[in-house]
Design a protein around this nucleic acid. Sequence first.
DNA 1: CATGGATATTTCGTGTTGTCAAGCATTGCG
DNA 2: CGCAATGCTTGACAACACGAAATATCCATG
Lengths: 146, 146
Amino acid sequence: MAAGIRPPDTLTREVLELFGTVVARYHAEYELAAAEHSLTGAQARVLALLAREPTPMRQVARQLKCEPSNVTGIVDRLESRGLVERRADPADRRVKVAAATEEGRATAAQLRGGLDFADEPLAELTPVERTLLRDLLQRMLGEHTE
Amino acid sequence: MAAGIRPPDTLTREVLELFGTVVARYHAEYELAAAEHSLTGAQARVLALLAREPTPMRQVARQLKCEPSNVTGIVDRLESRGLVERRADPADRRVKVAAATEEGRATAAQLRGGLDFADEPLAELTPVERTLLRDLLQRMLGEHTE
DNA sequence: CATGGATATTTCGTGTTGTCAAGCATTGCG
DNA sequence: CGCAATGCTTGACAACACGAAATATCCATG
């Protein structure tokens, strides 16, 4: 915090590189798990989100960090497969609440189960290590939470 | 290792969730950093790759985990901006080696510098913690390395 | 050395994701 | 009421991803 200039720390670089690899792998695994249910990554993400709780379109967009117009298409495709449905919000007739159907929730559950990427190696770590990892990650995220 | 069945460990779930968040943030930051150079995420990834060392198309595809036909377009766009060039491989006239130009390498360097996401919070960790984080990540990746 | 199978790249067609601008309905405030 | 703000959709467009087919080159085998 003292100096604005940060020398190119080898260790930091190394960790960054590793994170990049982890991110890439995580993505690939997620995409793969989704594909097993004939879903794209984006569709799987939205479905997972809606399986948690019904959500207005606009909020979905916010959580996906994309434009609302984009969500329309994704939900369209999920809806046409019967995994999601649009409901009217009685409190505000402008908003449409997207909600996972019974089948949608089942698919989301299977999807979560199939996401075995980090699961497996994580199991190799001792509880102490896992706790440490969790804390480190939390600190990394805490710094940038808006 | 003993039992095939793994109970839904709360701590593991928590870490997984955190990884999901980290991945999401990493992606968003990367996309943003790329956008500042009028590049898409995919273009930035390929450029970073080629700035390291010239690489045949097919290997780029392998590292990107995508179809070779896809790389053609991405390199096309980078080439049209003068950031990348295609060279013939004297040893095998089938392969085209994509290489970053001088300008491409400069852009890649700037891009790396702008990737301040994990950098910042990582600086808060002690060297011991960073080392631990590195080892944990390596173990996670080591299990699944092909 | 010629034939043919494998490999590297590109092209084409298609679907999904993402953006932005415009449009429509509804809400809520002055 | 009038009117800006809000929520969602539509349309046009670029990028990206896949798969199949085309082309060129390599290499092993006969």
